[in-house]
Design a binder for these strands. Structure first.
Lengths: 338, 338
DNA sequence: CTGTTAGCGCCTTCAA
DNA sequence: TTGAAGGCGCTAACAG
């Protein structure tokens, strides 16, 4: 591969001049520049990023750190879509992109700081770290900037991008209210998950603002699983024929509720309206297609990438960004006709 | 971040000695080594890979080149799973991994060789290039080794990993034949994709060996897209009520055909049998669950990564590897009762 | 066993 | 407007 030296020899100019010409400095004679440019093109010159990074102390590469990238995560393509967004944006911004997949055990062999230093990463986008992952704290305290996806933490060179979790969940419940539903059950996920809490809050808040009594026994736990959700919904619906709508903290659980209705001979949405959360691919294929709240991981990826580059380049841009979730109206919800 | 120099100062040994101690050369006094090791650990030293790569002329990083990494490809997570396989294997082998996403237009700005040279990539794993992509030829002729996924090309420092594409596709068509189908349509993907050709060949060969006439007009083009496939199948099925089965070059297109049948009020599999290809997650959830040919992209990714590292390190290992596809019988196929 | 010297390819002073 | 010198952090060849 051609180097500056090669071009220097071929043109007769010094390496320094060649470097400046190629990097667009204006203290180079136009003729000189043209000649250098021409030869450079002929030789198929491309700067060696490693060498450049070494001296400039910045690599123009961003790491995308995920925990346990493995086959299983293919199921919800949330991570993949985020990755696509990050990749596209970084590519537009002319940054490189290395994928850093780590496991809890690996984090003991190499610190976060070392990982960044080795590659001289300019910044890192982080997704899906557990709250107790050692890397999380290291990342926040590290001098190399990072942007977190869906983990709201602020710091000097730390940013995050997340979605309007609460608002969008409220929107979903309000939609049911507006259609005349009053007896609305809530299928919650794991009580320990952050998103569960938020969606639960949304549920309660909307009931309150709508002057609908909150009933403890209308809140079920499906543990984010289809089967658990189905079982739970089955017995519940038997005991509560007055319930006309279900808000579920995830699509998977909504599918469980849907199954329960089938077994009970109920029609969706005539007898029971169902709203899910996530807009998983499947949700548009089931029958009836599921009304649900869609997240936009691709957008989040793009914003995260854009933000990390801004921070890295020292531009003072906001250190937080939000992507709007969207309520997607399909056919699992109808007016309450009782 | 600590450098060799820092350790050198802290220990009093020269940079060279420190380097050798840390890299496990045995011409270093045990005491010296211990001291150096200790200080290195204290200082949290991690070698600067960029600097090392620069002098060693090898970066210990492999590129994963894909065309058009974009949201749409999330539907069939083939690419993602391959990526996971590559990532996991490379991580085991202690190699780094950069994602190179390119589009046909981008390929004009920067040659393949330049792309590799910039990062001093040791090797590249390539997936999803079209046959007429400029990068493909460049890659094969390039001095930097590459391994292709699903594109069988051999060369000195070129290898490939693929599955028994032809055999498994033939198996699928034979299955239809055995169930009595004779009027079998074929939904093909992009004509430029290698896999399309192979599946097309399989289709033709089985027809021939079964003494079933091949009909040009039974071959449709769904461009690997659901919508295109649906549209195409719609008008086709209207004009060809005699057709009893569809072999599709991808599950996504099979879903398109499935949709078409719904619009036409046809029952699957009673009125029309459908076989897909890929075994995407969705295929087991649609109704009826799709009979399809399963690939193992994760395995292919691992093998590709392992192969590229072997080639890079000059070990003489085979330059081809195969992963077996499997025909998965579900409910979208039935006996021909006409 | 250890240190000196040299250089990977590039960029950034500083002189000319 | 151009060039020479120096150095980023690391390794390799050669002495001692």
């Amino acid at each position: 591969m051609a180097t500056l030296k090669d071009i220097s020899k071929a043109t007769g100019f010094s390496v320094t001049t060649v470097s400046r010409a190629l990097n667009g400095y204006d203290d180079v004679n136009k003729k000189t520049r043209d000649k250098i440019m021409t030869i450079a093109k002929e030789l198929g010159y491309s700067p060696n990023i490693l060498a450049r990074s070494l001296v400039k102390k910045q690599s123009k590469t961003i790491g995308f750190l995920v925990t346990d990238l493995k086959r299983e995560s293919a199921k919800d393509n949330f991570m993949f879509e985020t990755l696509c967004g990050v990749s596209d944006e970084l590519s537009d911004l002319d940054y490189e992109f290395v994928l850093l997949s780590t496991t809890t055990s690996k984090q003991k062999n190499k610190t976060y700081g070392q990982m960044c230093a080795e590659r001289q990463l300019d910044g890192v986008v982080i997704q899906g770290l557990k709250r107790d992952d050692p890397y999380l704290l290291e990342a926040i305290e590290s001098t190399v900037p990072c942007v977190l996806v869906d983990i709201p933490v602020e710091g000097v060179n730390t940013g995050y991008v997340t979605s309007n979790q609460l608002e969008s969940a409220k929107q979903a419940v309000r939609y049911l209210i507006r259609l005349g539903h009053r007896d609305i059950a809530f299928m919650n996920g794991s009580a320990h998950a952050y998103v569960s809490m938020v969606r639960y809050d949304a549920y309660r808040q909307v009931l309150q603002e709508s002057k609908v009594d909150f009933r403890e026994d209308y809140v079920l736990n499906g543990d984010f699983e289809e089967l658990a959700s189905k079982e739970s919904a089955l017995s519940f619906l038997l005991n509560h024929p007055e319930v006309t709508a279900f808000f579920c903290a995830s699509d998977v659980m909504a599918l469980g509720v849907l199954q329960a209705t089938r077994e009970l001979g109920l029609n969706v949405p005539e007898d029971l309206s169902i709203i899910g959360f996530d807009n998983i691919l499947l949700s548009q294929y089931v029958s009836p297609p599921l009304t649900t709240v869609a997240q936009q991981p691709y957008e989040m990826g793009r914003k995260a990438a854009s933000m990390i580059v801004h921070i890295v380049e020292g531009q003072d841009a906001p250190h937080e960004a939000f992507v709007n979730n969207q309520l997607i109206l399909r056919e699992s919800v109808a007016k309450n006709r009782r």
